[in-house]
């Protein structure tokens, strides 16, 4: 029953999203508004500015290198969070064992 209700609601959401998405500019046309002057600038000036043929590498490590620094910080934070969550019990178990031995 609950699943049926979710299905009806999500079908409604799907139809809503599809009707709005059909008004977007067509897939793969050159006149797409996302293919704007920023992309043209990157494609035309990358060789001159960075002399790296791979435009994506130039964007993520030269034009927007600060963004990539934040990205590495995200990785660092995630690993710090995972280790801080998972290593607590180990230390507690060790302490308990030590206490038991002492007791």
């Amino acid at each position: 029953m609950k699943k049926l209700m979710f299905m009806v609601v999500l079908t409604g959401l799907f139809l809503l999203l599809v009707t709005s998405i059909l008004k977007m500019p067509a897939l793969g046309s050159l006149n797409n508004p996302s293919y704007n002057e920023v992309s043209h600038y990157y494609l035309e000036n990358t060789i001159e500015d960075t002399s790296a043929p791979n435009v994506i590498a130039a964007v993520i490590t030269d034009y927007r290198a600060f963004d990539t620094l934040g990205e590495t910080t995200v990785l660092f934070t995630s690993i710090a969070a995972v280790i801080s969550v998972l290593q607590i019990s180990h230390k507690n178990h060790n302490k308990k064992k030590v206490e038991k031995h002492h007791g």
């Binding site: 797409n32 996302s34 293919y35 920023v38 992309s39 990157y42 494609l43 435009v55 994506i56 964007v59 993520i60 927007r64 963004d67 934040g70 990205e71 995200v74 990785l75 934070t77 995630s78 690993i79 995972v82």
Partner: peptide, 20 residues
């Protein structure tokens, strides 16, 4: 267009971190 591919790299990294 190179920009969406470059931006999505950030998204993939965040997705991996959230999953872990």
């Amino acid at each position: 267009n190179p920009l969406p591919s470059a931006l999505i790299l950030t998204g993939i990294v965040v997705a991996v971190s959230i999953t872990a």
